[in-house]
Amino acid sequence: MWTFVIRRVGQGLIVVVAAAVVVFLLTRAFTDPVDFVLPLEATEEQREAREAELGFDRPIIVQFGDYVEDLSRGDFGESLWQPGRSTIDIVGQTLPKTLQLVAAGMTLAIALALPMGMIAARRPGGVLDRILVTTSLIGLSMPQFFVGLLLLIVFAVQLQWLPVSGYGGFSHLILPALALALPAVGRLTMVVRSAMIDELNSQYVRVSKAKGTPTRVIFTKHAFRNAGVQVLTLSGWEITRALAGFTVVVEKVFAWPGFGLFALEAIQRRDIFLLSTIVLVAAILVVTVNVIIDILYKVIDPRIELT
């Protein structure tokens, strides 16, 4: 177990370092933020002065050396877009908001998808199953921005039950969380359903049915436990995906000042320092979630060998 954890963390570190290097090289090689940041009519001298101030006039390898040295001292650099602010401060301020959104959205998704999938699996082909499958297919095939706008127009513009966008109290969280959850509900429901159908058709379930075990116990204790591994895999994928920036669409539509929205702003404003920090932190998060999911496999199904 512990050798496994250490090995996975080691592999994760390689991924994180690789992501940091790639982003550093790509942003330095293909963009010149100075042109973008300065006013259009800035003179050549002003451009050169700003490049020198930011250190872009030095060879890229020297810049990378400095970057690594600064990182080793915990200095993530200053934002180009918000002068005077450390990029790690900006991440520290926006990441909790994304985590809040992802936590709410994923809790909602799992809370909806588990009962829906299990209900659908009880009588495959039945009326309830057909309704749930159709709903899930609609949910998972709708583009996220469309879901977001639809929710926004119905609940904020027309009914005016909830605030339209921005960050604030609990009421501000409901629509973006729902927009994040709905496509995931569709995907998860389908997986829970098919995994449960497989389990319910298996030999051991039939035997225990014949022995007179109550349906409720078969469902929750036997079948679901075995279906859990597949559900966990997909849930982990959903969470990783959300953390890796896929919340950006929802954050943009609802003006939710999270990690994804700031990543987008960093790209649009050519803030390569902020972008580098965001990618680094996102890579660490994704690796962490993956390691946790791997460990949970073992908890759910002790037969799984962690290698």
Partner: peptide
């Protein structure tokens, strides 16, 4: 308030 998406500004 800061709303970068113009459709969301209109909705608000």
């Amino acid at each position: 308030r800061f709303i970068s998406e113009s459709g969301s500004r209109l909705a608000g």
